[in-house]
């Protein structure tokens, strides 16, 4: 931290030294604003990419906790031959299954879901609000919701056997397969976000290295003069490094602001879209704490890239 402070410290405190920011006029020139904009854009994209990864983690966590210990028994409205099962018969079967499951100790709660609740669950797929079963005119299955405390591995098999005895078409859904697919998808998206961040960082490093090399070519005479006066490579490198760190700070601030506005806007938009099947993501302190690593990493990356590039180029000089 002290080193960073030293790097950023400007020698303007003495009154007569009003012009001494850099021995090489790095902060003057057309490329300066371009580089800040470039870093800002990189930071913005990195923010979006990392935010996406964090939000995906939130979603998969919410999906997991939402489904954990919650199983469903589906009683289809048609039998294996495709004939419609009368509603009252279906309800009797459901009652029977519910009664028979009460003897299973790990089950905390067993209840038949009312038809309105089932329709509500299906509403997003039908794009219809406040519909009734009659209005939709569809043979809805009956659902029994089960809540377990700590299910032993054999419980699902035992339950399925018990259910089949009463109604062979009934099926127990522990959501495992669906959850597995979902976690696989979020894992892939995580990896994509990570790779995207790596690509952004690599592009940023290459662009910055190129920009620094062109800066060095632009100020070749001044660099040579500093060498002739006795400046070591580290002295010259520090000037470029300080310049890069200040640009990284400015770029990171711009990128962070733009990303914050974008994310708040997105959150507001998603809040208003209840039919998107997506949970609302949290932008709490932890979320921002994780994202705040990006400016630090940007500064570190810019500083190291500049140091490496300048030292390597200086070695080829006088």
């Amino acid at each position: 931290m002290r080193k960073l402070f030293f790097l950023l410290k400007r020698s303007r405190t003495l009154g007569v030294s009003d012009t001494h920011t850099y021995d090489i006029p790095l902060d003057k020139g057309s490329g300066h604003l371009f580089l800040i904009s470039l870093i800002g854009l990189m930071v913005f994209l990195a923010f979006l990419s990392v935010s996406a990864a964090i939000i995906l983690s939130q979603f998969s966590r919410q999906w997991q906790t939402g489904l954990e210990g919650h199983w469903t028994i589906e009683l289809p409205a048609v039998d294996s031959k495709g004939n419609l099962i009368p509603r009252d018969k279906l309800e009797q079967k459901a009652e029977k299954i519910t009664e028979s499951l009460k003897s299973f100790k790990p089950l905390r709660d067993v209840k038949i879901l009312p038809q309105e609740e089932i329709i509500k669950l299906l509403e997003p797929w039908f794009q219809v609000q406040n519909a009734t079963g009659d209005a939709l005119d569809l043979p809805f299955p009956l659902l029994i919701s089960l809540t377990t405390d700590s299910a032993p591995p054999s419980l699902a098999t035992e339950l399925q056997t018990q259910i089949t005895r009463i109604m062979p078409e009934a099926r127990l859904d522990t959501h495992e397969e669906w959850l597995r697919q979902l976690l696989k998808l979020t894992g892939t998206l995580h990896l994509t976000a990570f790779l995207f961040t790596v690509v952004i960082c690599s592009a940023g490093v290459v662009a910055l290295a190129g920009a620094m090399q062109s800066r060095m070519a632009e100020h070749k005479d001044n660099i040579e003069l500093l060498h002739l006066i006795g400046a070591e490579d580290s002295y010259i490198t520090r000037q470029f490094q300080r310049h890069a760190i200040i640009m990284a700070l400015q770029g990171a601030a711009a990128g962070l602001s733009a990303a914050a506005i974008f994310l708040y806007g997105l959150r507001l938009y998603l809040h208003g879209q209840s039919d998107l099947l997506l949970p609302v993501f949290e932008m709490n302190a932890l979320f921002w704490l994780k994202l705040s690593l990006i400016p630090f990493l940007t500064i570190l990356l810019c500083g190291l890239t500049t140091r490496f590039t300048v030292l390597r180029t200086l070695h080829r000089m006088l």
């Binding site: 020698s11 001494h20 021995d23 006029p25 500093l226 006066i229 006795g230 002295y235």
Partner: peptide
């Protein structure tokens, strides 16, 4: 160095 004042130009070797 044209962007530096008289003072800073002369001070340069000492800063180095």
């Amino acid at each position: 160095l044209q962007h530096l004042s008289t003072f800073d130009n002369v001070a340069l070797p000492l800063r180095i």
